[in-house]
Design a protein around this nucleic acid. Structure first.
Lengths: 207, 207
DNA sequence: ATACTCGGAGAACGGTTGTTTACTGAATGG
DNA sequence: CCATTCAGTAAACAACCGTTCTCCGAGTAT
């Protein structure tokens, strides 16, 4: 089944990945719409024309970058929410997990936050699609909890989307704050999350 | 006191405003970091060098655009929150107001949403400063309400920030959805806001 | 061993960019 | 009325851009 890649195909994947890595590094201080094709190839050390062997243009590279960045995160949220503990514990764990991920791979999150509303339509749509998927996953995980008794699917999806948006917002705030302000951001993020959780607990009280 | 502007200074302000307007129009389909200085002057019909009479570069233009766009919105939120009616009514009014503003001036909100996490640092900071100011205004308005009895300043600011972020998120969602999906976005935005309001009502129940 | 595939190199293309320098002419103020 | 200020112009600069075309040489399959 695992057909060992030919040394040719392997090299191609290698330079392709090099292009993606270089682009991600360059995108730390600028946005995709201003990223030059030549800029990327120069950073990698290949001819500008080699770029076209892998992507149609910087927009296509951006889409690939989205899938690589967000694709590897699926299931992570579900795993967190599936763990045991009271709501306060899980809340802290969630925020802590985000904080650690952002610290470990700042460039990835910066890219997503930046291009979520950026100037390249295809990339925006790719991110939106992934985040919608996340929201559905969170909704599914929430549905399995006893606290969700009596909730309809639409409200669960609303809550899932709220959590996802909060996650992205927190990641972005962490990046803006830097290492010094991290503690403060985490504090506020926790508190916001707690407010939402309180709202969730009393959601069915109102008409 | 109101020293009538000389016809010279008036002309300068006029072309300056023309530059800002043209830039805002161009920024509907791209982001600031890819906006060319010449592109703007070409749209206005002036020489590229005239640009420097008004701004140091496109970044400075962006900052001016932020202040013009968000500066005119101060007090609006406070006015809404100060109106009477039960929380459900005010909630609907708030979302409706955002929806109407976004429909009336899409380019302004698109610009803010796009550059909030965009590639130009100075613009990011300008937006962040304005939004922080908004959050403080909302917090001050909330503090005057009877529902806020027992709340400390920090929690009020947290809640104000939550409302502001929700507002920006809603505006962005409206822009992404277009006229067709507007109703759906408004529905979800209202529901999210209601959840936060429920959480607010029971915030002091928990330790 | 031979023919083929194909990732990458190289050169050249027209076009655009930001910025500098020197200049014009109308509004301004004494 | 006359000297000065100054918003906007015109030309030129070197640097960079995306894209096309042609070619090479190592990997591949027969």
């Amino acid at each position: 089944m695992s057909h060992t890649l030919g040394i040719r195909q392997a090299q191609k994947l290698k330079t392709r990945q090099a292009l993606l890595d270089a682009a991600l590094r360059l995108l730390e201080h600028q946005s995709l719409s201003s990223l030059g094709l030549r800029e990327v190839t120069r950073a990698v050390g290949v001819a500008p024309t080699a770029f076209y062997r892998h992507f149609d243009g910087t927009a296509a590279l951006g889409v690939a970058l989205v899938e690589q960045t967000l694709g590897s995160l699926h299931g992570m949220i579900g795993a967190i929410l599936a763990e045991t503990g009271d709501s306060e514990e899980r809340l802290d764990r969630s925020v802590g997990l985000i904080s650690r991920h952002v610290t470990a791979q700042p460039a990835h999150f910066r890219f997503i936050a930046r291009e979520q509303h950026g100037g390249v339509g295809a990339v925006r749509e790719a991110i939106a699609a992934q985040l919608r998927l996340f929201a559905e996953e969170v909704a599914a995980a929430l549905a399995a909890e006893p606290e969700s008794a009596g909730w309809d699917a639409e409200d669960l999806l609303m809550l899932g989307g709220l959590y996802v948006d909060h996650m992205v917002l927190t990641a972005s705030a962490l990046l803006d704050a830097g290492p010094d302000g991290e503690q403060e951001v985490v504090r506020v993020a926790r508190r916001r999350l707690r407010l939402v959780t309180v709202g969730r607990a009393h959601w069915l009280d109102a008409p």
